[in-house]
């Protein structure tokens, strides 16, 4: 299978990439890992006129901790995230999700930022980003915007980037106090899309109550779903099985899964509830230093 014909540029710096994107407008499309974009082009689901390949823009390959957040650059591969000590030190949910993205070969090539920008509701990373309250840094030749992930994800395969803009970095905030988190994914086989994925994030205050809760769902809605109602309900409460069961019930009713080859909707709702309970239980154990 072959993509439609396209033009190709491989800029050597971010400035050059942004200038090219500005010139191309809607015709331009950033190529990073290409592990979603190239298959979509081969299947003729996407036919960009001009690819701007950023694989030579080495300044975007960073994973670093600074200014109270973890920054993951647009060229950091899933495998880099999975093996990063900074990631495992900084955020449990990210560290938990990284090894479950697709398969080892795709992880060697695909990027976290590319997956975030792709906004596939069956993609894993955006549920994590919703749960941990990440932001997306978008650059264009005329400047920079820092976009909260809730504003970045617009809908099914749709982000809020403007013409000529590209994602250069995703930022994951640091938290105060003890915390934990998990990404639990049910998949039929390695490399398949998630049947259901649930990202949980939990921060405790000094007295052991919930200071911050995050809950993001994969593959059970038209886009990755942040279950704000459950998150808000948990804040200030005593964490434990009863609270997590309540959050699980809210999550199960907030999602809207399809009946498809990966299972009936009723089954997926049950998995959402169970994985919400298990994810928060795992997060709590980590936050208490037991996990």
């Amino acid at each position: 299978m072959y993509p439609s014909a396209f033009e190709y540029s491989a800029p050597g710096s971010l400035e050059e990439a942004l200038a090219t994107l500005a010139e191309l407008g809607d015709e331009g499309r950033v190529l990073a890992g290409g592990q979603s974009l190239i298959p979509m082009m081969k299947l003729r689901l996407a036919a960009p006129g001009h690819l701007v390949d950023i694989n030579g823009v080495n300044e975007l390959a960073h994973i670093s901790e600074s200014n109270g957040h973890l920054a993951v650059g647009a060229l950091a591969r899933h495998a880099d995230v999975a093996s990063s000590e900074a990631v495992s030190r900084h955020n449990h949910t990210l560290a938990s999700a990284a090894p479950w993205v697709s398969d080892p070969l795709v992880r060697n090539r695909g990027t976290l930022c590319g997956s975030v920008a792709h906004c596939d509701p069956e993609g894993d990373w955006n549920s994590v980003m919703l749960a941990v309250g990440a932001s997306v840094v978008a650059r264009s030749s005329s400047g920079e915007r820092v976009i909260p992930i809730t504003d970045f994800i617009v809908d099914f395969f749709t982000n809020s980037l403007d013409s000529g803009e590209m994602v250069t970095e995703v930022r994951i905030p640091a938290y105060q106090g003890s915390a934990g988190g998990a990404y639990l994914k049910l998949e039929r086989k390695v490399g398949d899309y998630a049947t259901v994925g649930v990202a949980t994030h939990l921060v405790l205050d000094g007295s052991g109550n919930v200071a911050e809760a995050g809950l993001g769902l994969t593959a059970v809605y038209g886009h990755n779903l942040k279950v704000t109602e459950a998150e808000d309900m948990m804040v200030g409460q005593v964490p434990g099985p009863e609270l997590f069961a309540e959050a699980a019930a809210i999550a199960a009713s907030a999602c809207d899964p399809d009946d498809n080859v990966r299972g009936p909707a009723e089954y997926k709702r049950a998995v959402v509830a169970e994985y919400t309970r298990r994810g928060f239980a795992q997060a709590l154990a980590q936050a208490r230093g037991e996990g």
């Binding site: 491989a10 290409g34 190239i38 390949d53 080892p104």
Partner: peptide, 13 residues
């Protein structure tokens, strides 16, 4: 040095 799927990499890359 890294294993990749060559059906999903462009030759120009």
């Amino acid at each position: 040095g890294r294993p990749v799927k060559s059906c999903t990499v462009l030759a120009v890359q």
